[in-house]
Amino acid sequence: MTTLWISIISVALASAAIKAAGPVLVGGREPSPGFLAVIKLLAPALLAALVVTETFGDDRHLVLDARAIGVAVAAVALALRAPVLLAVFLAAAATALARALA
């Protein structure tokens, strides 16, 4: 087998195992108050980390580029109570425009 196929199959198996782990190990038990308190904070923690790494991260470098402009535009739109899809659209448009002008 080639390196490519070994990589494809091992990544697929590893991804499936990672996704299966939580549902299988935690099971359908009634969540404890401590568990719920942690899970409640998991969404804000994870989303905050995804936003900053996808906005300022470029492999192992922190960069300030056209993505920051788009995400900032989305933040302003959301603060002005724009619907989510409009905010996302404006973000993409602002980033595309910034790149076109650069």
Partner: peptide, 30 residues
């Protein structure tokens, strides 16, 4: 060129904003 790489961070930001209404603890953790 179409700015599509900000679609997901902008979307996650919108979801984060609604999660942050969950209280001071959520804001601090974020």
């Amino acid at each position: 060129k179409l700015g599509l790489d900000v679609v997901f961070p902008a979307f996650f930001l919108a979801l984060l904003a609604s999660e942050l209404r969950g209280g001071r603890m959520a804001v601090g953790v974020a």
